[in-house]
């Protein structure tokens, strides 16, 4: 636990250095987090080069927006990850996912790989963590829906299709799952 705290204090200090125009601050964030950030973006975008492109753009944004981070607004790590997540999701929503897959077979293959990876994200969570425990308490299908959205960047429509549910049903199940999760983690 101590190392987690140290890490996040390091990131806060590094962001403050960025805001002061010190490039070394950005390099420290890069050295500590870039590998994981590329992995996060790649899990959403599937392709390494797109993931690296997103992380590259994100680091420039971290640099130019570092003054907007304040410790009162959640962890420095959460702030940094949200920048990468948002850029990856934007790229995906801009229709680039279609560029990634040619025919249905390839898509189905990639899909099942990705779904495995999505569920793996839950399994690799610390068993004693609140998030693991609370996700565990959800109905299977609601948990899947939530993980497909957060981990894989799927839209409501994509989730409904893969879970073979009508769109409205998928939406309301996810909404209720999120509500239970909030209560559980409160």
């Amino acid at each position: 636990m101590a190392s987690v705290t140290d890490q996040s204090t390091d990131l806060e200090a590094a962001l403050a250095d960025c805001a002061n125009g010190d490039r070394d601050g950005l390099k420290r964030i890069f050295d500590q987090e870039a590998g994981r950030l590329v992995a996060v973006a790649q899990r959403i975008l599937r392709r390494r080069e797109l993931a690296e492109e997103v992380v590259q753009e994100s680091f420039i944004r971290i640099w130019t927006h570092s003054h907007q981070y304040s410790p009162g607004r959640g962890s420095a790590r959460g702030w940094i990850y949200s920048i990468v997540r948002n850029r990856a999701l934007n790229l995906l929503r801009d229709g680039r996912r279609e560029d990634l897959v040619g025919d249905d077979q390839v898509e189905a293959l990639q899909d099942s790989d990705q779904l495995n990876e999505i569920m793996a994200a839950w399994h690799t969570l610390d068993r004693n963590s609140r998030l693991h425990e609370c996700l565990n308490g959800l109905e299977e299908i609601r948990r899947r829906g939530i993980l497909m959205a957060y981990v894989g960047g799927y839209t409501h429509g994509e989730i409904a299709g893969r879970l073979r549910l009508p769109l409205g049903t998928a939406k309301s199940w996810i909404r209720r799952g999120l509500s239970s999760l909030r209560e559980c983690m409160a």
């Binding site: 590329v38 790649q42 981990v151």
Partner: peptide
């Protein structure tokens, strides 16, 4: 869910 991921 993100920070538990292995870096590449």
């Amino acid at each position: 869910l993100d920070t538990g991921l292995a870096p590449v």
